[in-house]
Amino acid sequence: MATATESQTRTLISQVQLDRPIARTVYWVAFWTLIVLFALVFLFPLYWMATGGLKSSKEIIQTPPTVVPHQIHPSNYSAAWHDANLGKLILNTLLYAFGALGFQLVFDVAAAYAFSKLRPAFGNAVLFAMLASLMIPTTVIALPTYLTANSLPFVHWSLLNTPWAIWLPSVASAFNILLLKRFFDSIPSELLAAAAIDGAGPLRALWSIVLPISRPVLGVVSIFAVVAVWKDFLWPLLVLTDTSRQTVNVGLYQLSVGIPQNVLIAALAIASVPTIVFFLIFQRNIMSGLTAGSMKG
């Protein structure tokens, strides 16, 4: 007789079928075949990029292409680091990414907390308008945003070629606000009521109760904020015309016509390392934060 735990677990193949030797063999063969297939699909582009940076200029344009380099040229990576000035470009991108992260953690958390717990007047209408902005393509609002950054209303300051041109537009992240609000909605109101009885105001309750509970979703928002700035291309291309202030994506695009193709691929491989390492370190935070949306109260 199946136990209560087994009866509540629903899978495509029952445990009774898996107990049969033939079914178990077929299951594990199919399972590992799919695992290997998907691993190849996702990892092969990374392998192609890493090995492309090791090929010679002649081999990189050879037809048909070679899967394994005939001769390894590790000097391509050192040339890419110096010729493309990757160190400066990566430092610029890190500055923009973590600056945007700081602003989002302050303003997006405050907005989501207000929508969820403080319930301001016309809050639902404002939230609806913010969510409706998700339906607008980024390229549609690029021009008005650029004109605003070029000459701020009333003060007429130009933010071009400054980190503020990256930081301030990134604060308006309706998706992150929605993600934070959904998590804050799951926090029992009794906790905040008990804090209010003890004399804690809204800011104290946010700092002492809400934020410690919200670490998983804050981790996810942080990852999304950093990755969004790191992979962005169009907006930095418009507002960062000074080559000494460009991001890694824009800098490599500007230099792509002046360096050999194998060196360019090596530069792309180096530029992708920080994001891969970032994902490998925080992959558990991504999954736990996306699934953390309910609490027992």
Rank of each mutant, 00 (worst) to 15 (best):
H82S: 15
S133R: 04
I187P: 06
P144C: 06
P202N: 09
K231V: 12
V171H: 02
W48K: 12
M49T: 11
L43G: 07
M130K: 01
V229K: 05
T9D: 09
A30E: 01
V239Y: 08
R20V: 00
N285E: 13
I213D: 04
L43V: 14
A50S: 04
G102D: 04
Q261H: 11
M49P: 06
M287V: 13
A121H: 09
S133W: 05
V221F: 01
R119T: 12
L252N: 05
Q104R: 14
D83H: 09
L134T: 09
S208D: 06
V226T: 10
G258Y: 08
G201K: 03
I276K: 03
A269W: 07
P137C: 06
A200F: 10
A110Q: 06
I90F: 13
S56P: 07
I72T: 10
L191Q: 07
S75K: 05
N124E: 15
A205F: 04
V248Q: 07
V239M: 10
A225F: 10
H70I: 06
F42A: 13
P74S: 05
S78I: 11
P74L: 03
T93Q: 12
F98H: 00
I223G: 01
V220M: 09
E6W: 10
F103M: 14
A174G: 09
M295G: 08
A174R: 02
L237M: 14
F184P: 04
A172N: 11
T148F: 13
V277H: 07
P260K: 06
R24V: 02
R215K: 15
F122T: 01
L255V: 08
H156T: 06
F183K: 02
S57L: 08
A142M: 15
A196E: 15
T11S: 12
V229T: 13
V221W: 01
Q17M: 07
G87S: 14
F224P: 00
Y27T: 00
I281W: 10
G199C: 09
L238A: 09
A4D: 14
H82L: 08
I177N: 01
P202V: 05
T5A: 14
L252P: 06
T5M: 12
Y113A: 03
V36G: 07
L203C: 00
V248C: 12
I22H: 02
P274Q: 09
I259D: 01
G53C: 12
I35W: 05
A79T: 11
I197S: 06
T241W: 02
Y77W: 11
M49D: 04
Y146A: 06
G289D: 00
K58M: 12
L43R: 03
V210Q: 05
L152Q: 07
V36L: 15
L147P: 07
P65G: 05
K231Q: 14
E190P: 02
L290V: 08
V26M: 11
T247V: 11
A205C: 04
I35V: 15
F107Y: 11
K231D: 11
I141Y: 14
A121M: 15
A266D: 08
S208Y: 09
I265V: 15
K88S: 13
A80H: 01
A112D: 05
S214C: 13
W48C: 02
I223W: 02
L268Y: 09
L264R: 00
F233L: 15
T25M: 03
V140E: 01
